Computed example of a mutant assay.
Amino acid sequence: MRIRNHRHRRRISVVTGALLVAIAIAIAACTTQSSTSGSATSSPAESSSGDSSQGDSSQGNSASTDPAPTAASSGTSPGTSGTPTRSATVGPDDKYYVSIGDSYAAGYQPSGPDDGGTTSNGFAYQLATRSRSTSTPLQLVNFACSGVTSTALVTTKGCEAGALGPGAPSYAGRTQAAAAIEFLSTQRSRIGLVTVVIGGNDVKDCVTAASPQKCIEGAIPVLRRNLEPLLAAIRTAVGSAVPIVGLTYPDVFLGDALKGTSASITLAERSLLLFKDYLNPALNLLYAAHGATFLDITAATGAYGDVTQRVEVAPYGSIPRPIAQICTLTFYCQYGDIHPRTVGYQLIAESISHVVFK
């Protein structure tokens, strides 16, 4: 399975190239303002922009409005068997929603620059809650483990309690992949949905690598080797009718352009190319090969948006909308943390909901 031919890998697409040039020009224009207002790790309190996707539920509030990480109940409780304890809000005939992946699936959020934990604000928890108002109520069983690569997902046994999502089943002595497949197989008739988000930890260091292209071209085959058999096993376990949804990530590294240095703008440019031309096409092919739906969260969070549209985001002033989206949907501009705010996880949950709850 090839992603791009060698010649294409060395070529920036016209659309991507135009976007990068526009970002560089736009950031240069607001560098002076941002340098006097605060650094790129300050809290970005966004003003009203007329876009309902911006910010948290109360427009104009800063990142501090996000709830602190708490181990809230999600309708499951830890256990050695991997079988959830039924919540009072879940009916006896409800289907299971199985979440597989890394910290995005586990619902991680920072509570400060150097601290944080998994929360029930994650997209999997929000999606399970949303399902209760549909004709397909789902009970979440979340096997995700913060920090895993695709290799760790299929080879590392167990997951530290602090890395599991709230209410997640324990699977000590088994890999996440094995535990999830066992559950899917034994509960085959009651599986309603499977989501998978993995690969971010495989490629994140490529953005800052000496040769990003060489790094990503080495990482993609590893991701493919790990994900191919996992997706095949999931499809075999659940049958052809159960929806499997695969996800990618926001391009948080666009936020580095706010620093206004040539190095930071170069890093933002690299990240856009890695998502658009490498990681996302590879994931799309992998999921499609197993009858799964791929959701491009990079696009959904505005990375390829119109940079001529500007949004007021404190303390940076007027900045291109794609970068503003990163500041308002994730903690990257505030803490340098790659994880979504609650509103960012909400956007992901809504994207899945549009596919599953038609």
Rank of each mutant, 00 (worst) to 15 (best):
A18V: 10
V21A: 15
V21E: 09
A24L: 00
A28S: 10
T32R: 07
S43M: 10
S53M: 08
S58L: 09
P67R: 13
T70Q: 10
S81A: 14
A88W: 10
V98E: 06
G101C: 06
Y108D: 10
P113H: 13
T119N: 08
G122Y: 01
Y125L: 03
Q126T: 01
S131T: 01
V148L: 05
V148Q: 07
V154N: 06
T156S: 15
E160F: 03
G162I: 01
P166T: 06
P166Y: 00
G167N: 05
Y171P: 01
R174W: 01
E182G: 07
S189N: 14
V196I: 11
V207W: 05
V207L: 01
T208L: 14
A209H: 11
A219G: 04
R224C: 00
R225F: 05
L230I: 11
V238K: 02
V242N: 06
P243Q: 05
V252A: 11
G255F: 09
G260L: 02
I265A: 15
L279G: 04
N284Y: 05
L286C: 01
F294P: 04
G305R: 03
Y316A: 07
Q325E: 14
L329Y: 12
F331H: 10
F331M: 08
C333I: 12
C333S: 07
G336Q: 04
P340Y: 08
I352C: 12
I352F: 05
H354G: 05
